[in-house]
């Protein structure tokens, strides 16, 4: 990986690497509220079958995951756990924020106990809108993330700067 870290890897190698990363996403399910059931439907139900996209939905721990789906309302009491979960994941790691609550607080925009968006705690790669989004919407979010992974330069992850990637 020294080549990747130096940022001098040839384009074809990067693309190959990205393609293989794109089709072997281990996704950790961080189900919090209603969206968790739709996420369950997307990941478990035979009707939606997420594995055909190259996504493996049941890692044993966040330490084995590439992607976490934050699905549902993040409360102020839960927020430290979400942050800790993100810190436990190995790089490169991606986050999908699923549903209005995780995006911005949703119907609880004026609540005293709800965090108004998970992006206040951890960086988010793809936002899936909806309350809750249909399972198809989550699959679309995953496809978008895969496009993003395909187009990114892995070396950016080691440069330390903010990640700005066109998907």
């Amino acid at each position: 990986m020294g080549l990747v870290e130096s940022g001098k890897s040839p384009k074809s190698l990067t693309t190959l690497l990205n393609m293989s990363r794109k089709y072997s996403l281990w996704v950790y399910q961080w189900g919090l509220a209603c969206c968790a059931i739709e996420m369950g439907a997307a990941f478990v139900a035979p009707r939606y079958d997420v594995m055909r996209l190259g996504v493996i939905p049941l890692p044993a721990s966040p330490r084995q995951a590439d992607l976490v789906v934050i699905s549902g309302t993040v409360t102020d009491k839960m927020a430290p756990s979400v942050k800790r979960l993100y810190e436990q994941m190995p790089d490169p790691k991606y986050v999908i924020s699923m549903g209005s609550c995780a995006n911005c607080g949703g119907p609880y925009w004026d609540s005293y106990s709800v965090t108004k968006g998970v992006d206040q705690i951890i960086p988010v790669d793809v936002y899936v809108p909806g309350c809750p989004p249909r399972p198809e919407a989550l699959l679309e979010g995953i496809v978008l993330l895969q496009e993003k992974i395909l187009n990114e330069d892995p070396a950016d992850r080691w440069k330390g700067g903010p990640l700005v990637i066109d998907g």
Binding site: D76, K77, W109, D110, S111, Y112, S113, K116
Partner: peptide, 27 residues
């Protein structure tokens, strides 16, 4: 039971303000 240990105030009292509503107009 619900709130974090350090939470100040009693939310369901009528004089407990919902701060978000001070900032934003009611949608």
């Amino acid at each position: 039971l619900y709130l974090p240990t350090g939470f100040e105030g009693n939310p369901l009292r009528k004089d407990f303000p919902l701060l978000a509503r001070r900032m934003k107009p009611w949608p």
